[in-house]
C-alpha cells in the first residue's frame, strides 16, 4: 500500500527536518561516543595488546550508552507541544507513525555512530577487517537498540525525569545485543569465525523491527491516558 509508505516517509521526514534545523541535541550522543572511545586508549596505555583486548568491549559499551542518552528525547518534544496527542487521533495507523519516528531516530543517532566507529577503531589499533566487523555489528545492534528504546521512551514519555526508569527498562533487553556485538568483534580480532554472531544480531534486529512498533504504539496509548 503506497499510502502507508507515504505516512512512514512523512513522519520520518518531519523528524529529520527538525534535527536538521536544530542539530545540537542529536549530536550530543555522538560526542559522548567519540570522547569515551578516544579518552580510553589514553588512560589504559599505548600497548597494542591491551588496546586490542579492551577495544571491542569499550566501543560497544560506549555505543550502547550513547544510544540510551539519545532515547529520552524520542517522544519528549512531541509530548510537550501536543503533537503526540494529534498523532494519537490521526486517521493513520499509529504503528506506522511510531516506526517512522524510530527510523528517523536511528538515522540521526545510530547511523552516525556506525559511520564514526572505524575511526574510533583506529584508536584501539584494530585491523581493517575487524573495524569492518565492528561497523556491521554496530549497524545491526543500533537498529535493535533504537527499536527497543522506542518502547521504553513511549512508556516513560509522560513521566518527568523518566531517564533512569527508561534505562532500567531497556538495559535487560539490550544485553543480548551488547554480548553478541562485543563478542563477535573480539572473535574477529582473534582471527576466529565470527559470522554466527552477525546472524544472531541480524535476527534480533529483524525480530525487533517486526514486533516492536506494535508495542511502541500500544505503549504510547497507555502513557497518554
Amino acid at each position: 500500500m503506497p499510502g502507508l509508505f507515504g505516512v512512514l516517509f512523512a513522519t520520518a521526514r518531519r523528524d529529520l527536518t527538525l534535527v536538521w534545523k536544530r542539530p545540537g541535541d542529536s549530536l550530543n550522543p555522538l560526542f559522548f561516543f567519540a570522547m569515551v572511545a578516544s579518552l580510553f586508549p589514553l588512560a589504559v596505555g599505548p600497548t597494542p595488546e591491551q588496546l586490542q583486548f579492551a577495544g571491542p568491549g569499550v566501543l560497544w559499551v560506549a555505543a550502547l550508552l550513547a544510544m540510551l542518552l539519545s532515547l529520552n528525547s524520542l517522544f519528549m518534544s512531541d509530548f510537550e507541544d501536543g503533537s503526540l496527542e494529534q498523532l494519537l487521533v490521526s486517521p493513520q495507523p499509529l504503528v506506522v507513525m511510531a516506526l517512522g519516528k524510530t527510523i528517523a531516530h536511528w538515522l540521526t543517532s545510530g547511523l552516525p555512530l556506525v559511520i564514526l566507529s572505524p575511526v574510533m577503531a583506529l584508536a584501539f589499533q584494530m585491523e581493517l577487517e575487524v573495524a569492518g566487523v565492528l561497523m556491521v555489528t554496530l549497524a545491526l545492534g543500533t537498529i535493535s537498540l533504537s527499536l527497543l528504546g522506542s518502547v521504553g521512551a513511549a512508556l516513560t514519555v509522560g513521566l518527568h525525569r523518566g531517564t533512569a526508569l527508561l534505562s532500567l527498562l531497556i538495559l535487560p533487553l539490550s544485553m543480548p545485543v551488547l554480548i553478541f556485538g562485543a563478542r563477535t568483534v573480539s572473535l574477529a580480532a582473534a582471527g576466529d569465525a565470527y559470522s554466527a554472531g552477525i546472524y544472531a544480531l541480524a535476527a534480533y534486529a529483524v525480530g525487533a523491527l517486526t514486533l516492536v512498533p506494535f508495542a511502541t504504539s500500544a505503549a504510547l496509548r497507555i502513557s497518554n491516558s
Binding site: G3, A10, R14, L18, R22, G82, S83, E85, Q86
Partner: peptide
C-alpha cells in the same frame, strides 16, 4: 479533527512545513 489546548505544531518548523505534514496524513 481535534483542536487541543496545546497546538500540536512544531515550533522549529515553519507554517507550510507544519501544515504539509498534516496534509500528508490526510491525503
Amino acid at each position: 479533527v481535534w483542536v487541543a489546548h496545546r497546538t500540536g505544531l512544531k515550533s522549529d518548523l515553519n507554517l507550510v512545513e507544519n501544515l504539509r505534514f498534516e496534509s500528508n496524513l490526510r491525503p
